[in-house]
């Protein structure tokens, strides 16, 4: 059974059919790309997968469990974590605490323990500090753990978002244009980090990218979306040589 199964997924906003009859599967451990021109509906797919939008048609299953109708925080508990195209960090919190919020359902203690700083409070906080620093190290953010998230440079903010998502210990990680706004060097480095993360955290990755060439380097399989519909799918080589895909990109 595939980790993620999307069947005949569709959503309408008023008269606009943003996504239509989308079928998609992501196997355990895979690194899959979701590509397509601007406005194709890629982010809308992520919003449906994470419960931000409720699809008007179709089904979504994670490990065989239905996700449609679940709230975003419940879907996170079931094992999907994500980043956002327009970065959404907890700007006033330190970098370290941004990651620690990601442990919210992983490392827990009760409200009385937190009001009195009693019981397992100290032990669990220490455990979270250590785990958070470990994750920050992977993204080379450990030197700036006490910065306010808002004061990080742009590229590092993108990385921090991935770090926070990984803290929730997801089965499936959704990355929405993680390289947007980065220069080619930063992008190449980020792609390496994503490869590394995938092995280290044993996480399946579904990645949105606007730039087709860029993902073809690391993704094993690609889904191409155009005007809300699936235009093509296959290995990067297959997809890149598909004339329809080429026209969609040149036309868009």
């Amino acid at each position: 059974m595939a980790l993620l199964e999307v069947t005949d997924l569709g959503i309408s906003f008023g008269g606009l059919r943003a996504v239509d009859e989308l079928n998609m599967t992501v196997e355990q451990g895979a690194l899959v790309g979701l590509i397509g021109p601007n406005g194709a509906g890629k982010t809308t797919v992520f919003n449906m997968l994470t419960g931000v939008y409720r699809p008007t048609d179709g089904g979504i299953r994670l490990d065989g469990e239905n996700l449609v109708g679940k709230k975003p925080h419940e879907i996170c508990k079931m094992g999907i974590a994500r980043t956002f195209q327009n970065i959404r960090l907890f700007n006033k919190l330190p970098v370290l605490d941004n990651v620690k919020t990601g442990f919210h359902n992983e490392v827990t203690y009760t409200l009385p323990e937190s009001l009195f700083h009693a019981g397992s409070y100290r032990k669990k906080e220490k455990q979270m500090d250590e785990k958070a620093m470990e994750i920050l190290k992977v993204f080379d953010l450990d030197g700036q753990w006490d910065y306010k998230a808002a004061n990080l440079p742009y590229g590092k903010q993108r990385k921090l978002e991935i770090a926070r998502a990984l803290a929730t210990d997801p089965k499936l990680l959704l990355l929405d244009e993680p390289a947007a706004g980065m220069n080619p060097n930063e992008t190449a480095e980020l792609m390496e980090t994503i490869e590394l993360v995938r092995r280290r955290f044993q996480v399946t990755v579904l990645l949105i990218e606007h730039d087709m060439k860029l993902v073809s380097g690391i993704c094993e399989y690609l889904y191409v979306l155009n005007f809300g519909r699936l235009l093509a799918q296959g290995t990067p080589v297959e997809v890149l040589s598909n004339p329809e895909v080429v026209t969609a990109y040149l036309g868009g």
Partner: peptide, 14 residues
């Protein structure tokens, strides 16, 4: 504070 800073992001991490 996470809810204060970004509700959608807070939701997304459970």
């Amino acid at each position: 504070m996470a809810v204060r800073d970004n509700k959608i992001a807070a939701d997304s991490i459970g």
